[in-house]
Simulated assay, not measured.
Amino acid sequence: MSKLYGALRHLVQLGAAFACIAALPAQAAEKLVLAFGDSLTAGYGLKPNESFPAQLQASLRKDGMQVRVHNAGVSGDTTAQGKARLNWVLRSFPRAPDLAIVELGGNDMLRGIDPAQTRANLNAILAELKRRKIKVLLAGMLAAPNMGRAYRAKFDPIYPALARQYGARLYPFFMQGVTGNRALVLKDNIHPTAQGVGVIVRNIKPLVKAML
């Protein structure tokens, strides 16, 4: 009986080992997307599964893609704060992400930070990602009308200019189709609801899929 038990246990162990080996290609094939941004990425006011990274991951997987989207959004972050933590975030991964979605600058605009500083910080972020050979999808931001024409004239061109400079793909306005629609934003009229995030995901997903 003991010999039979030992043989059965050996077969079970072999089966588990083969199962692990069989799973390796699937794990290796999984794409890693870094969603690097502020509260719009983090999912301010939403449940974890309602955030942009979570909904994007779910939508891509529904399309049959093996993808993990890492939420590296921090509410309140300016481009300077994003630049300061970028290397720490990248060092936390066992390998380089296949794609980085960079969504920063909204808080700079809301605080009236000099657009030249915003551009310099985003420039440093994109330069570091390029140095690490990580593909970038740059999510643009537009200055609010109350910031004035002079500010908008300096702020809005930052994103297309940097995308051209670094050969990054540009999604011109992260909140496209959401801003101005009260049904899709929270009571602060800034952050998207879960449904608003769904609109963002549907709009940006074709670019993400093309880059992966």
Results as ranks from 00 to 15, higher is better:
residue 6 G to C: 10
residue 10 H to I: 08
residue 13 Q to M: 07
residue 17 A to M: 13
residue 23 A to V: 08
residue 24 L to C: 11
residue 26 A to E: 12
residue 30 E to V: 04
residue 35 A to R: 11
residue 36 F to I: 01
residue 39 S to I: 01
residue 40 L to Y: 14
residue 40 L to E: 07
residue 45 G to S: 11
residue 46 L to W: 10
residue 47 K to G: 13
residue 56 L to T: 00
residue 57 Q to N: 11
residue 58 A to F: 00
residue 58 A to S: 13
residue 61 R to I: 03
residue 64 G to F: 02
residue 65 M to N: 12
residue 68 R to P: 01
residue 72 A to V: 09
residue 74 V to Y: 04
residue 77 D to N: 08
residue 79 T to A: 11
residue 87 N to A: 14
residue 88 W to K: 14
residue 97 P to N: 13
residue 97 P to S: 12
residue 101 I to H: 07
residue 103 E to M: 05
residue 103 E to R: 01
residue 105 G to M: 02
residue 113 I to S: 10
residue 114 D to L: 12
residue 124 A to E: 08
residue 125 I to V: 06
residue 128 E to S: 12
residue 129 L to A: 07
residue 134 I to M: 04
residue 138 L to E: 06
residue 148 G to E: 14
residue 158 I to L: 02
residue 162 L to E: 00
residue 164 R to C: 06
residue 165 Q to R: 14
residue 166 Y to K: 07
residue 178 V to K: 00
residue 180 G to M: 13
residue 181 N to C: 07
residue 186 L to Y: 03
residue 192 P to K: 07
residue 194 A to G: 07
residue 194 A to T: 07
residue 196 G to A: 08
residue 198 G to V: 14
residue 201 V to N: 01
residue 202 R to I: 08
residue 203 N to E: 13
residue 203 N to L: 09
residue 206 P to N: 09
residue 208 V to E: 10
residue 209 K to T: 15
residue 210 A to N: 10
residue 211 M to C: 06
